[in-house]
Amino acid sequence: MLTVALPKGRLMDKALELFDRAKIIETTNYGESRKLIIEDNKADLRYILAKPTDVPTYVEYGVADIGIVGKDVLKENKRAVYELLDLGIGKCQMIVAVKSGSGFNKVQELGFSAKVASKYPNCTTEYFRSHGIQAEIIKLNGSIELAPIVGLADAIVDITETGRTIAENGLEIIAEVFPISARLIANQVSYKIHYHSLREMVKALEEVI
């Protein structure tokens, strides 16, 4: 039996729907339950419902053989796992945004003492360094859009799907950091041990993406 770490929330429903279409499972009715471990004997799968940011951790340590998680989480916390497939769901963008009318049009204009707020300090550091800017990173845990408005930061690095929340909070996007979508990941040893069934799964998923 393979153990799958799934991210609780919207992405999980989309992922299960994809698994259903690829005929890996038959039902998508797992979201209703409050259980954290669900067994699907028919498909010979066991699900661990985890916080999205914890999915790669479960997979790296091998308590889950495979997992589904956004590229943002993988980039922020580099984990030694196989990244088998871009599932093409949960698409969004990691972006840099500033207060509308602040006059900043490019990240380079933020200068060398830029203050940047983000839930993703590692991605933020890497992005600004690659542009030659030693930004001061302010780690926040939510409502990132607030930071430039109240004067905590000059810019934010955050995820957006449509850009609406950004615009509604009086911010504008000045750069795209990287595109995000959900990935199928696998534990390094599980991948080798269950190689054939996992390659079959990848093939089946590739056909419905």
Partner: peptide, 10 residues
Amino acid sequence: LQKDYAGLKA
């Protein structure tokens, strides 16, 4: 090396 096959495909 990072076993990022999704990235390789892209």
